[in-house]
């Protein structure tokens, strides 16, 4: 009961603190989706059917991953530097409530861009998407995993290192992660790495639920995400409760 009350108050606190740049963040990450959907056909004027579906379903995945692994760690790193985390830690608030409240606000930032990205993709390419009902848990799981892993990065690393690593991640996510293309296109060694990382599973779960007729949902993908999600959450929680 107390935890629930704390959670509600902390969501209000975090949303109010972010309100100045919240719409901007939502707009920027929506532009991620739109940029991919509208920009790829400019680069490659003739796209085959599979590629079109990959782009339309990969765009929302990229926007979720880039918020979780890039925008979030940078913002959380900043909050750590300005002492927000330390201040919250001095209040009689369950650590879990704080973390879950912050994740809630981040999910609220991510989801509109995903929905808009899918709609624009379907419109741009004239796709008739047979969206699976599993899309709701899929999007939540992908967004939650991305935010948990991003949070863990920012919790463990010093701020400057977080910034540098997230910059590198932008390139890695956009160019070398099987989100808008299939993993078979990658060199074998990178394909192996991606089998262990959560990004490939994020792409599989997103396209497997937005366009289930085109892409089968690999049975282990949700499990891979769950493992990374729990891992990210546990690392963050441990960093947050640790007393130096």
């Amino acid at each position: 009961m107390q935890a629930l009350r704390s959670y509600r108050l902390l969501v209000t606190w975090q949303a109010l603190r972010k309100k100045a740049y919240l719409p901007l963040m939502m707009a920027v990450q929506t532009l991620f989706s739109l940029g991919i959907v509208l920009g790829y056909p400019l680069l490659f004027p003739s796209l085959d059917r599979v590629t079109i579906y990959l782009i339309a379903t990969g765009a929302p995945a990229i926007s979720m991953v880039s918020v979780g692994l890039v925008a979030l760690p940078q913002t959380v790193g900043e909050a750590k530097t300005e002492g927000s985390l330390a201040y919250m830690r001095s209040l009689p608030v369950p650590r879990l409530a704080y973390l879950v409240a912050d994740l809630t606000v981040w999910l609220a930032i991510v989801v509109p861009g995903v929905v808009l990205g899918v709609l624009v993709g379907a419109w741009r390419f004239g796709l008739d998407l047979q969206v699976s009902p599993l899309v709701v848990p899929a999007v939540l799981m992908v967004a939650l995993t991305a935010t948990c892993v991003g949070y863990a990065l920012a919790s463990v690393l010093p701020y400057m290192l977080t910034v540098i690593i997230t910059q590198a991640l932008v390139v890695f996510v956009f160019m070398f992660s099987p989100l808008t293309f299939l993993p078979e296109k990658l060199p074998a060694w990178l394909e192996t790495i991606h089998r262990l990382l959560p990004i490939q599973a994020m792409g599989e779960v997103t396209r497997g639920t937005i366009a289930p007729n085109e892409f089968p949902l690999p049975p282990g993908a949700f499990l891979t995400l769950a493992v990374w999600c729990v891992l990210g959450f546990a690392v963050t929680y441990a960093a947050m409760t640790r007393r130096a």
């Binding site: 109010l16 603190r17 300005e82 002492g83 001095s90």
Partner: peptide, 13 residues
């Protein structure tokens, strides 16, 4: 209850 030495981060509120 505690008032820390550093400025409390409340921008936005």
């Amino acid at each position: 209850s505690f008032q820390a030495q550093s400025q409390v981060p409340i921008d936005g509120l």
